[in-house]
Design a protein around this nucleic acid. Structure first.
Lengths: 306, 306
DNA sequence: TTGTTTGATGATCGTTGTTCATGATTGAAT
DNA sequence: ATTCAATCATGAACAACGATCATCAAACAA
């Protein structure tokens, strides 16, 4: 039977004149689209694509489908858009947010305020303290949205990227490493790393820089961002935090920021949600993005994901 | 994401005002439709159906979808119809037909002639003799269509019902049982059953009447329908054949026909095909139906299946 | 020819949709 | 109220389908 995906496929084929390109256009592999096309052709016992010359052209049967696609797809998209709009008015009765990232409160609060302003009836909540696996809370139904930095793809969970940010090394003014343009893993050897009280694998610096280089610095922890910065300033060690988390203290010269590695250490923050809830959370996520870019400095658009 | 099935569901819901009725209308169980509805509602975080009073009514969001459905579905159906039409012109280069039913040749030949007249370029073939499992030929790609009387649902095979027919007992004029209005299983005891040379389970009389009653008559076989009728007429035993297979001999009084059981023993003939080929064979099947009803007497429309 | 790009195909895996079995609700009738 | 019937919802299990991976075959350019 004809499905919407077939119409999208035909449209993509017509516009690109190539199976591979069409596949990319509908976010599928070339193989998937080829199978899809083959199945539809076999189903009707018709050829839809004239493969004899490049660029590929649709056969009359293909053209007929293209016509249907042009009439149908805008209609479906419009309905979808309207439903999303209605959904955002209806506002989820409760939106419980779990946060893994310790420094995220700084921008999450303004974001929540902004959302509350748009939809006063929305009931926003922050759940629990810092739970080790916020994604589990989603699956258990104890939270509706989680902000995480390492998307491990679990079934039933969808991730929407929020923004890319740089994790910088923070050190006290006058620190021996202060003259470096950027720090390397080796520079951390013998230093004390001051961080939130979380396991190693939750820290990007450790995971992506120090452990690969075999560097295991001493660790010291503090709950609050300001406490960490205070320890750094009083020369108890180095910290590695998102640049925006320490922005004001950096500007005041209270601490110094240095990139980690020549390119800097970049990470991406994601909003995680139950995938069954589809696009219901989309409007909150866009508020999240908007306020993040308005509030934080030095963050960038995430790559990929339309 | 919105799918065509969702649009069909909404339309059915709007027109029936009931989940169960809508489910039946789209050939699904009530459970399936309820799940489908629930998933769509969760996806958008919207209620589509006002369940507070009967008959059920669509919410505004549901109405919006209904609007899309009314615009989209006719368009899709039209495209599908046009593709089917084109497919029937393009005619399958070869249509190889396997027949399980021995007496089927009588009406299959006129059907094939009729189809050939419509589409001269179609290449029709009858495959092999009477193979035990014609459906296997389909899966092996050695045939494209099979005519069978007992649809065993195998994956990848689709059955389209052709017609219902009565299997009658045939006996010689003046036979001791000739005065009965209809025969029962017990009447077969001690008689010789004359049939095609096929295993027991392929004979509907044995399968559905005699075996359940524990009656095991003597068996005698003949290859051709006329040979069986000749044996019956010369008092070598009874036969049980489709009424239409012996129609002319019955009319001439060469043999007598009696119903089996009070209601008669009815069976249905099906066209079997690879389901991946979808509707490509549909036009031939409709020719099959048409000529069968034109050629054969005493057959009926099959129940179910739109 | 060789190398490169593009499309096709088979196997496999995960997701999704459907059904079955059952529980919860609703409305009507006693 | 209580019971009964009808209707809808839900959880578990299964089957089917769609997508991907890993190749292979074919077309085109150098």
């Amino acid at each position: 039977m004809i499905e919407l995906r077939h119409l999208r496929m035909v449209q993509a084929l017509a516009e690109t004149g190539s199976v591979s390109a069409a596949a990319a256009r509908v976010h599928l592999t070339q193989s998937a689209l080829s199978h899809q096309l083959g199945a539809l052709e076999r189903y009707f016992g018709l050829s839809l694509l004239d493969r004899s010359r490049r660029p590929l052209r649709l056969t009359p049967a293909g053209e007929r489908l293209l016509l249907a696609a042009r009439r149908v797809l805008p209609e479906v998209d419009a309905a979808r858009a309207e439903l999303l709009r209605q959904a955002s008015n209806h506002a989820p009765e409760s939106l419980r947010i779990a946060v893994e990232c310790h420094s995220c409160f700084d921008w999450l609060m303004p974001a929540m305020d902004a959302y509350r302003a748009e939809r006063p009836e929305a009931e926003l909540d922050l759940v629990g303290g810092f739970l080790p696996e916020p994604v589990n809370l989603l699956l258990e139904g104890r939270a509706d949205l989680a902000v995480v930095s390492q998307p491990e793809d679990r079934p039933g969970i969808r991730y929407l990227p929020l923004f890319r940010y740089e994790i910088v090394a923070l050190l006290a003014p006058g620190h021996p490493l202060a003259d470096r343009a950027f720090l390397t893993a080796a520079d951390f050897a013998g230093q004390t790393l001051i961080s939130y009280p979380v396991p190693d694998q939750a820290l990007d610096v450790v995971q992506r820089v120090l452990r690969p280089a075999g560097v295991v610095p001493k660790r010291r922890t503090a709950e609050l961002t300001v406490a960490i910065l205070q320890l750094v300033a009083s020369r108890r060690g180095l910290a590695a935090l998102p640049r925006w988390a320490a922005q004001t203290q950096i500007e005041r010269g209270y601490v110094l920021a240095r990139s980690i590695g020549q390119e800097g250490l970049w990470s991406t923050l994601y909003a995680a949600m139950r995938s069954e809830e589809g696009e219901a959370r989309e409007s909150f996520v866009s508020t999240l993005r908007r306020t993040a870019f308005a509030t934080l400095q030095g963050i960038e658009q995430p790559v990929g994901e339309g």
